[in-house]
Structure formats: C-alpha cells, structure tokens
Nucleic acid binder design. Sequence first.
DNA 1: GGTAGACCTGACGA
DNA 2: GTCGTCAGGTCTA
Length: 283
Amino acid sequence: MSRYCTLHLEGDALPFDLDRTLSCGQVFRWEKKGHWWCGVLGQKPVLIRQEGDLLHFSGAPEEDISRYFDLDLDLEEILAGFPDDPILLQAIDSAYGLRIVRQPAWECTASYIVATFANIPGIQTRLKLLCERFGERIGDGHTAFPSPEKLAASPLCDIRSCRVGYRDKYLCGTAAILSADHGWEERIAALPYRDARRELLRLPGVGKKVADCILLFAFHRFEAVPVDVWIDRIMRTHYLEEDTRYSYDRIADAARQIFGPNAGYAQEYLFAAREMIPDMRKK
DNA sequence: GGTAGACCTGACGA
DNA sequence: GTCGTCAGGTCTA
C-alpha cells in the first residue's frame, strides 16, 4: 500500500460524513476495519478514514477520491432546497453529511440486480463471493469487481454458486448485453431521465427500482427516486393517503413533487434514517 | 397499463 | 436448533 495522503475538507466538500456515506446502504463492498474503511476504486485497493475536516487516504489520487465522493457538489445547497418537512428534517439531521457516491455504472448495475428482493447483509455476501470468484486480483487480498465480459462468458451454474439464486440469468444476460454495447454509459448519460430509464428497463433483471438506483447512484440523476419497500412505507404513511393504492411511478412522482428536483437525495436521507422514522402500520 | 403469484437465499428474531 | 418472516423487486401470464 502506498503512502497516506490527507485532504483538507473545506468549501463545497463540507458537510461530509464518511461513515454515514459508506454505511447507508448505497454501496456494498466497503468494509470498516478499525478506524479505516477498505474498498476498491476501479482497480485500486483504497484505505480511507476521516478525522473531522481531514480525510486521510491511500491507494488512489486525490482527484479520484474527490470525484468518487462527489466533494465538489454543494450539498448544503441541496439540503437547504428541501421543503420544511419534519420527517425529512429529522432524517437529514440523523444522516447529515451523507453524500451519494459516484459508483461505476457497471458495478452499480450488477450490484442492484443482485440486491433485488434481498437484505443488505445478504447482498454483501453475494457480491463478495462474485468478486472472489470472478474478479481480478489486485493485491492486498482485494479483487476488482468482475467485468461484464467475464460474467457474460461464465456458465450460469458458476454464477449461481455465488448464491445469487434466480438472479443468475439476469446478471449473465445484462453482462452479455452491456459487454457488447460499448458506449452505453455515455448514451445513458446524455439522455433525459425518462428516456435513460426506458433504456435501462430493457436489461434483464432491471425493473423500475433498479433502473432508478442506477440513475441515481451511478449517473447522479437526482430526480431519480428508487422506491423500495421502505420508501414505499414512509411515503404512504407520512406523505400520502395510507389506504389508497399507489403504483411505483405515482409514489416516485409524489416524491418529486414534494421534495423537488433533487428528490433522489431526499430519498437517500429517508432511507438512511428508515429505522428512526415511525411506521404507522405498527401502531 | 395494472395485478397476482412465483421466486433463491440468508439474516434475524421468536 | 428450528421455524417463520422479511428483504434496496422482477418477471410472466
């Protein structure tokens, strides 16, 4: 491991909370060992820790760290632009400094295909197995995320041995499509939100929720609002009429209407604070 | 365009 | 130890 560097957080880089950013459930491969978070950026093993306004790290150049954690984004402005809403304010207070990281598009896509209908510890186990089995060794016991080419060329039974269950064919199918479609990332990035989502929905294993996760976490389309069971619950019990039926799009549209153009960020704070937000159904 | 049922698996609590 | 429930949903009919 190379020498440590220190980044002084100031200006737009604040607020930033490394622990909240890496433990909120948006990424699955970072591991905390002692005070240090261990992870992989691209093909490089990275160590990183935060001490107040100082970010100590090794394994990657400062610009990669800054870009990954989106430290040029004026987060304060986004948070200040949300409505004066008690539930969201509580969520922001409890997760203050959480930033949506810039995930590599393929890794994000594959991760959220694996993440469907599963819980976070299970997702972490599966991704770890996939990386150990198919990822390139990059030193220090780390592996890069498996390439789409590698997964596309692997037998389904090998993929399934990573305990991904019925998602094996989705993962393999999407890997085959994307590995043959160079430039898909640029194309998605250039499309308006609705068109980009429509494109992603053509991939096997990618429904509305996963497409919104990809757009939010990899492409930073902050109007994308992934509606999972938790957000569904929170929106129904606190923002909508509880006994009415709502489709996925109606809930996402309602979130955009209530929280504005950065509703995806609001969603992430609500998700991070999900355990604290009362579930009216239990009353 | 909306709905119901099936679905791998593992974490977690009773 | 065992069992039931639930989980960052998608697909098919």
